[in-house]
């Protein structure tokens, strides 16, 4: 199934845009692996994952039209 991913902070620099769509992805682990293959620089980035605006803590099954967000921590003030 297709999921839409929104990227924040420097993750959008790595992916070259602030959103992207992944096809046929079943869970958040697979999503991370696929993104890592596509954008190896993500390996050096810290981020958390939200599915439909809820923070996820472990591998989470994805459904059609889920909206995913990848958020890095910011330290600046």
């Amino acid at each position: 199934m297709n999921v839409k991913i929104i990227l924040f902070g420097q993750l959008s620099d790595i992916a070259g845009g602030d959103s992207l769509v992944l096809e046929a992805v079943t869970d958040t682990n697979e999503l991370q692996q696929r993104l890592l293959q596509q954008y190896p620089a993500l390996a050096a980035s810290k981020y958390i994952i939200a599915v439909d605006k809820q923070l996820v803590q472990e591998n989470t099954r994805l459904h059609e039209n889920n909206s995913i967000a990848l958020l890095p921590p910011f330290s600046g003030g």
């Binding site: 420097q10 050096a44 810290k46 923070l55 890095p72 921590p73 910011f74 330290s75 600046g76």
Partner: peptide, 21 residues
């Protein structure tokens, strides 16, 4: 810590001095 349990390792996140604001 519920959001980001542990501090990032050196270089994982850029500061404003490095990334700009």
């Amino acid at each position: 810590r519920d959001l980001f349990p542990e501090p990032p390792a050196a270089g994982e996140v850029l500061s404003c001095a490095e990334a700009g604001v």
